[in-house]
Nucleic acid binder design. Sequence first.
DNA 1: CCAAAAGTGTTATGTCTACACCCATGA
DNA 2: TCATGGGTGTAGACATAACACTTTTGG
Lengths: 254, 254
Amino acid sequence: MPTKTRDQGVPAAYNPSEFPAFAVTVDIVILTMLKSRLHVLFVRRGVAPFEGKWAIPGGFKRPNETLDQAAKRELSEETGVDSASLLKQFGAYGDPGRDPRMNVVTVAYLAVLLDVGAVVAGTDAAAAALLPVSEALTGKLDLAFDHARIVRDAVERVRVDLEQTGIATAFVGPTFTVAELRAVYEAVWGVHLDGANFRRRVVTESGWVIPTGRRARPGVAGGKPAELFRAGRLWQQGGPIRHPQSPERGKGNQ
Amino acid sequence: MPTKTRDQGVPAAYNPSEFPAFAVTVDIVILTMLKSRLHVLFVRRGVAPFEGKWAIPGGFKRPNETLDQAAKRELSEETGVDSASLLKQFGAYGDPGRDPRMNVVTVAYLAVLLDVGAVVAGTDAAAAALLPVSEALTGKLDLAFDHARIVRDAVERVRVDLEQTGIATAFVGPTFTVAELRAVYEAVWGVHLDGANFRRRVVTESGWVIPTGRRARPGVAGGKPAELFRAGRLWQQGGPIRHPQSPERGKGNQ
DNA sequence: CCAAAAGTGTTATGTCTACACCCATGA
DNA sequence: TCATGGGTGTAGACATAACACTTTTGG
């Protein structure tokens, strides 16, 4: 009785106008490191609904492009950044009423950028801003649509991907110090990691980071100049660092 | 220059008909264990396009329901199963031309069921079938739309989630033996796991499995009767078993 | 008694963590 | 020479994997 003969629900005499029409958008959560904290790019809405509230960038998908292409195009249009260094889909949102004007299903993407600061600086300060994720997650910001939920899901995804993928390298430049890389993990996970053990993990076994021979200039307070590395190929398969409380899963509970 | 004032691309004088209309569907990859192998539920298409080819179940999203609700409804309509024991979204697909009739964006869900065998048995054999994932992944099956890709992504997701979530328990019944649970890992990952070490991992520290006091009947060839357990609460946070080659990431390569 | 499958014990090996210690720089 | 951060060494705690061994059933 259950399994009906399957044709995507389309009757033999097919007529597109009989089926509910949706607008499909792509929205992009753009993340970047700023002052050792994780930040999100928001733009200020200029029209109703949600006029004056913060929203993440996005726009309509066109029929002749893929979802990935739409995300890349929107990223380019909104920030001028063409290098889709890291742009990955992480969820779809289609609750009724999420857009009061019409039925909209949005496909959410996550992007990690380095030079967003310059983008924002070259913009009307009221129109775009980099804000700490902590403020978005704690509800301090008044966000448009269901963007609070989308940002929350994006950050959760980054926390997981930090362990599972090479996303950490997207937060640092083409060359970087071990301390810079460690700062990414500490900011995203909100933990402290032992510098000595962290270094061993990434530099001891070759493939994670490749020495460039150059050194970074120490800060104003001095200190030994740090070695500069570039990312190795091992990041394509996953990350070298595990989240602290991750391995001791289920010790003596009950 | 880049960041444009943002309003989802909708001009001030808004008119819905100016924006591309899409049909939105949900498609469900239904997985189950059968004879110690991972299987997918396919239904045979009765009409063009792709008439006669295998497809995964799915259907149109309605404007007044969420995506999750649409998936649950479709699962119920196609299999008669109401217990959304495990139903999670894992991707959206919107390539132009993926449906030759119209612009369709589909949101894909993953479901793990136990009693699909009964569902298929009560159906016209030509209309539905459980087929091994290996056949779908190797391209032996001729699948409709982009369903080959969707199934591939679903299986990849399960392989990862086996380590990160409690999805393994969805493949076994309300009570199960340690060997049954181990068979899930071995089938999904395609590896052999040491029975002794596996058992220690799940039964030693309480919280993973809870003894029921009952025992399973041995097979025809005899053997010690296995203890029956039910799943504990620790599975809500992740799984106890790690994929073998996972920890030794990046040994001595180069 | 034998085969088969469940379950326990043991041990070498590997990994992680914490922390002591040394190095190179700016002021 | 002192403060600061980069970088190395090391020992104990802990986790892993391999496999020998015991237990309990059906035939």
